[in-house]
Each structure stands twice: as structure tokens, then as C-alpha cells.
Amino acid sequence: MQRVNMIMAESPGLITICLLGYLLSAECTVFLDHENANKILNRPKRYNSGKLEEFVQGNLERECMEEKCSFEEAREVFENTERTTEFWKQYVDGDQCESNPCLNGGSCKDDINSYECWCPFGFEGKNCELDVTCNIKNGRCEQFCKNSADNKVVCSCTEGYRLAENQKSCEPAVPFPCGRVSVSQTSKLTRAETVFPDVDYVNSTEAETILDNITQSTQSFNDFTRVVGGEDAKPGQFPWQVVLNGKVDAFCGGSIVNEKWIVTAAHCVETGVKITVVAGEHNIEETEHTEQKRNVIRIIPHHNYNAAINKYNHDIALLELDEPLVLNSYVTPICIADKEYTNIFLKFGSGYVSGWGRVFHKGRSALVLQYLRVPLVDRATCLRSTKFTIYNNMFCAGFHEGGRDSCQGDSGGPHVTEVEGTSFLTGIISWGEECAMKGKYGIYTKVSRYVNWIKEKTKLT
């Protein structure tokens, strides 16, 4: 034993070699072989497995989906700052455009905790909710729209109204504003409101030439003092309507412009014939205590009207009353817009006519005020429907199939267009061939041609 100890002390290297040989010859039971080890760690190889990531292109799944990435790591994937920024906006807080917040056709661009709407022409605001041009839906104005110097929408209202708090709607500024039905039992019968379409306001006024200088022999019209197929109006439903009495009662109609003036057809009036105007009328054979009678003290036909040349060209006249009318729910003026808007309103496509005229061709006159909704007829169809001249200051309205029309005794009465609950004068009943005849239409004086003249002559002093 002493000898062994001496050998170990003198030859430590020998001992180490012996131990190493023993270990190498022993069977290893701690580690699995290569094949079995792979069965336990069965993990798919990654895209760049075996390579240094710093030297390969980034992978979106590896960089940002398996674990949260930084902007720089995302930049490695896209290799483009702009594309990385677009991805980053949604990656950080989701897609803010998912709810489609942009209105009126706006395009949404996502941002971090926010979004941006790219608005089409005519709109602005956070969600493109603000109209900035009158060309689109009248700028959301209830009545009139004008573009300011910086191309912003400025709404306005006709006389007797003021802008509401929203700067879009119009509200009454006087007790009985024009064009409004205020009798409670008839307010439910107000005709369907007309909503502004998209309009090209630059070209809204037709490029028409008034044929002022045409000389033409007097034409022989049949029954051209021209509501057939209409309905009984309720008291106060058309408070701007008046009836004219002269040699015979209810020979023509008219509309209240203001307390002192009536507008009617020029062919209705004769110099030297006494005319009485009755406002607030409903049943011409009954006294309903809503009527107001006034005498006409002055007749002003349009300066281009000449019955000797043509009885229905420039067929418009103004009547001055001896005493002002007292405005109330049964006696209310009709609204008159400017030339541009009167023309736009007419193009809405349908209007209402009213009167006490004959209820059928050569038949009896109506006792109760009649009204009828009539569609506008395109000019080409209008011209083809008659052998008589249709001037540019006239328009056609009615039904091709016949059966409904204005008729004798309705002449001078109103053709009105309702705009968001307020009625505007767009025409004056003038003439036609018979009444409600198939293929024939009622012919009306186009008020847009005469609004400046009306307003100039009827100013209240």
C-alpha cells in the first residue's frame, strides 16, 4: 500500500490518463441519441435557420407576430419608411378606419389613436360632414345658397324668414311668412316636400332668348283662358290664391305678392273693366268669414305684352289694390325667389296649380277651390304637342294621358313649387288646347323671366 501511494504521488498524470480511459469505455446513459432527441424537440425550422439574422431580410411573422416588435424591426421587413409607417399605425392600436367614419364618399386613412378623412370636392370637416359648395344638395341650405369668396357655403332665406341657429334652416321672422300653410287642420295635408338634388348652379339658368321682337298675326285659340281631375282644397291650404270678379264672377285667378299687390295673367284683364279681388276665398257660393274683398285701382301688364300681336306672350300683369290686405292664416303671400332659384325650383319637376275653373272641358265651374299636382314636361315634348308657338318664356306641365289639367277660369292662378315646406311661385296658368285632352298640356308663363320686374313694381313704400 505504501508503494502504491508513492507511485500516485510521483505520477499524477498517469492516474488522470487511467481515469479518462475508464470513462470513455463506459456506456453513456444520461444523453439520448440524435434521433430520439429530435422526437422530443420537434420544432419547425425557421426561415433563416442556421444563418445569422443580421444578414437576412426581415420576416413579418418572425419579427412582429411571434413577439412584439419595434418600429426598427418592422422597418427591416418593409425596407421602406412609408410602408412601415402605414403598417405601424394599425399594428400599434388597430384600424381606426374600420367603422368607416368618413361621410359623403370620403376616404379614410388610419393613424395612431386617430384617423384622417380625405374629402371629395365640396366637403370638409373631420368626417367630411361639412358642405362647402352650393353645387351639392344646395349646400344643405333649406332655401338659398351662395358661395363666399373663400368658396364656403353661405345660406340665406327669402323675405319674412331668418336663418336658424344651425345656419342652414329657415324659420319665420314674421307672423305670416310667405308660402307657408298655417291653418292647423290643413298642415297635415301639406304636399310632399321637395329635397334639393345635386345641381350645376353655374349652368342652372337656361341660355334662352326671349323672342321679344317676333311679330306674329293673332292666333285663334280655343278655350285658351284655361282644375280638371283635381281635388277639393281645404280652407287655408292655398292662402296665396285669390279669385278675380268682373263682368262675371271667378273669371280668373291670381296670387298675393304682398298686402297691396296681386300677380295674374295679362290676358285676364281689360282696361276700363272694374275688377274686384277676393282673398281668403274657399267656396265661392258661401260666406265663410275668411274672405277679404278689395278693388283694383291700377293694372300693370308687362311692358312687352301686346294682345294685338299675341294674347299669351309675356302673359303676366300686376294688380294694385285700393287697401292693403290683412295677412292671416287664410290670406298669405306666395314666396318669389330670384331668377336663378325660381328656375331651379321649376326644374324640380312638379308643381301645384289651383283655381275655381271648370271641372271638365266646357263644363261647370268649381264651387270649392280645386288643386292638382302636375309634372313638368320637357321642352321637346311640349313643342311636338301643339302647332302653336311655345315661346321661351312659357313652359308645359300636365299629363300625356289627359284627364287632369287646369281649365277655363283658372287662368292667372299660381303654379307653385314647394321647397322644404315653403311654396314659391314658378308659373302662372296661361293657356292650353281644350282641357285635359290626351297628348295636350297646360301652358304656363315662366315666372323666372319676370321676377325682377315683379319685385321692382310691387315694392311697398
Score class of each variant (00 low, 15 high):
4 V>N: 09
5 N>D: 04
5 N>T: 10
9 A>C: 08
11 S>L: 11
13 G>R: 03
17 I>T: 02
18 C>N: 01
18 C>K: 02
19 L>D: 00
19 L>N: 01
21 G>T: 12
22 Y>G: 03
23 L>E: 02
26 A>Q: 00
29 T>P: 00
29 T>Y: 06
30 V>C: 10
36 N>I: 04
40 I>M: 14
43 R>T: 12
44 P>H: 04
47 Y>D: 09
49 S>P: 10
50 G>I: 07
51 K>Y: 05
52 L>P: 15
52 L>D: 13
56 V>K: 03
56 V>Q: 09
59 N>K: 08
60 L>D: 15
61 E>L: 05
66 E>L: 09
67 E>R: 14
69 C>E: 03
72 E>N: 15
76 E>H: 15
77 V>W: 09
78 F>Y: 14
79 E>I: 12
86 E>M: 15
86 E>N: 15
89 K>H: 07
92 V>D: 08
92 V>N: 03
94 G>I: 06
95 D>M: 09
97 C>M: 02
98 E>T: 12
98 E>S: 12
102 C>F: 01
103 L>H: 09
105 G>C: 05
105 G>A: 14
107 S>H: 09
108 C>M: 02
108 C>W: 02
111 D>T: 06
113 N>G: 06
113 N>H: 12
117 C>N: 03
119 C>N: 04
120 P>W: 03
121 F>N: 07
122 G>V: 03
122 G>W: 04
123 F>L: 13
123 F>R: 14
123 F>C: 04
127 N>L: 13
129 E>H: 07
137 K>H: 07
140 R>F: 07
141 C>Y: 00
144 F>M: 04
163 L>R: 03
164 A>P: 02
166 N>Y: 02
168 K>L: 08
171 E>K: 06
175 P>C: 04
175 P>N: 04
176 F>M: 04
176 F>Y: 10
180 R>F: 03
182 S>C: 03
187 S>W: 06
187 S>H: 05
189 L>G: 08
191 R>Y: 03
196 F>I: 07
198 D>S: 11
198 D>H: 11
198 D>C: 14
199 V>K: 07
199 V>Y: 10
203 N>W: 07
204 S>M: 13
208 E>H: 10
212 D>R: 11
213 N>K: 05
214 I>G: 04
214 I>K: 12
215 T>P: 08
215 T>F: 13
216 Q>I: 03
219 Q>E: 04
219 Q>P: 12
225 T>A: 04
226 R>M: 10
228 V>A: 12
229 G>F: 10
230 G>Y: 11
231 E>T: 07
232 D>C: 08
234 K>C: 04
236 G>T: 05
241 Q>L: 13
243 V>E: 02
245 N>M: 05
247 K>W: 08
251 F>K: 05
255 S>D: 01
258 N>P: 00
267 H>C: 02
268 C>S: 00
269 V>I: 13
271 T>E: 12
272 G>K: 09
275 I>W: 09
277 V>C: 03
293 K>D: 02
295 N>T: 12
296 V>I: 07
296 V>M: 02
298 R>N: 13
301 P>C: 08
301 P>F: 12
303 H>L: 05
307 A>K: 12
309 I>D: 13
309 I>K: 14
314 H>E: 05
316 I>E: 00
318 L>H: 00
326 V>P: 01
331 V>W: 00
332 T>A: 10
334 I>T: 01
336 I>H: 01
341 Y>P: 06
341 Y>Q: 13
342 T>Q: 03
345 F>K: 01
346 L>V: 10
346 L>A: 06
348 F>R: 12
352 Y>Q: 02
354 S>A: 14
356 W>Q: 08
356 W>V: 12
360 F>I: 14
363 G>D: 06
371 Y>I: 10
373 R>A: 15
373 R>K: 08
373 R>F: 03
375 P>C: 06
377 V>T: 14
379 R>K: 13
384 R>P: 13
385 S>Y: 13
387 K>R: 05
387 K>Y: 09
388 F>N: 13
389 T>D: 15
390 I>A: 07
393 N>T: 14
394 M>K: 06
395 F>S: 02
400 H>W: 07
400 H>P: 12
401 E>D: 09
405 D>M: 13
408 Q>H: 14
414 P>T: 15
416 V>M: 15
416 V>A: 06
417 T>W: 01
419 V>H: 14
420 E>T: 14
420 E>A: 04
421 G>H: 11
425 L>V: 01
426 T>H: 01
430 S>T: 14
430 S>R: 03
431 W>Q: 14
437 M>F: 06
437 M>I: 05
439 G>K: 13
444 Y>L: 15
446 K>H: 11
446 K>Y: 02
457 K>N: 15
461 T>K: 13
461 T>C: 08
